[in-house]
């Protein structure tokens, strides 16, 4: 058919698989029976109403949730077929980078921000570090803007630049997966579009999962979309998961339809 040739060729190797994944905060079940497969070198957007567990699920992929002491999980999340909950957590987080909602560069120089991760993993050689910093900043589309100011504080940059610095910082540890928790929600529209374009380029090397409240952003920037909702007991579940083109033009589920057309609740 003519229509299919217009579509991008989709990768088919699966990178992250969640199987019957549940998550509890104490007695409260925040995620219920999550089953999903995210392909390698793709961008998966997670959308859904507030408080339905989008971020919780995202933070389950690099076990950031464990910072909250009462968290318990069951089921499994596999990365390249290996259960991440049996891996060493520090090792896992080297493989799964994260970018946060608000740009959060450390109060250090731009160089030290990017070099922080590699240094933490024991890289000391100055030449290799410099190379890595340049590559990461280039990949994060920031190099040209900061190459003469590497010693300047990362906090002196604009919001959009700060967020790209944070992306560069995450890239510097050479992860395979990058998780983004509403990475553009604190940025202006132009900076937002820059980040979205950047994400498109990054998917060639990385698998990206992005939580967003902005449905237009999910539609613009992702290949696959995961729609979360919550049961009356407030525990989150996946309503629908599919190619973004399908979710936003012809969702299968009524809940998805209501949510993305803005007629939810």
């Amino acid at each position: 058919m003519v229509i299919t040739s217009l579509e991008e060729k989709k990768p088919n190797k699966s990178k992250i698989i969640a199987r019957n994944f549940d998550l509890f905060y104490g007695d409260f079940q925040a995620l219920k029976d999550i089953n999903v497969t995210m392909p390698q070198n793709s961008i998966t957007a997670i959308i859904g109403p507030s408080g339905c567990g989008k971020s919780t699920f995202l933070r389950s992929i690099n076990r950031m949730n464990e910072l909250i002491p009462s968290v318990k999980t069951s089921g499994e999340i596999l990365m390249d077929g290996e259960d991440i909950y049996t891996q060493d957590v520090v090792e896992l987080r080297k493989t799964v980078g994260m970018v946060f909602q608000r740009p959060n560069p450390f109060p250090k120089s731009i160089f030290d921000n990017v070099a922080y991760g590699p240094r933490a993993h024991g890289l000391k050689n100055k030449n290799i570090l410099e190379e890595l910093v340049e590559k990461s900043l280039t990949d994060a589309a920031l190099w040209d803007e900061v190459k003469d100011d590497l010693h300047k504080s990362g906090l002196a940059l604009s919001g959009g630049q700060q967020q790209r610095l944070c992306i560069a910082r995450a890239l510097a540890v050479e992860p395979q997966v990058i998780l983004m928790d509403e990475p553009a929600s604190a940025l202006d529209p132009i900076a937002t579009l820059k980040i979205e374009e950047l994400i498109q380029n990054l998917k060639k090397e990385y698998t990206i999962v992005i939580v967003t409240h902005n449905m237009q952003q999910a539609a613009r920037a992702s290949d696959y979309t995961m729609v979360f909702n919550m049961y009356p007991d407030r525990s989150g579940y996946i309503v629908e998961y599919g190619e973004t083109s399908q979710i936003f033009t012809n969702p299968r589920e009524k809940t998805t339809e209501d949510y993305i057309s803005g007629r939810f609740g």
Binding site: A219, F248, T249, N250, T256, I260, S261
Partner: peptide, 9 residues
């Protein structure tokens, strides 16, 4: 209004 799904169709 940037409609999606049924509205878009």
């Amino acid at each position: 209004q940037q409609p999606f799904a049924r509205d878009l169709r």
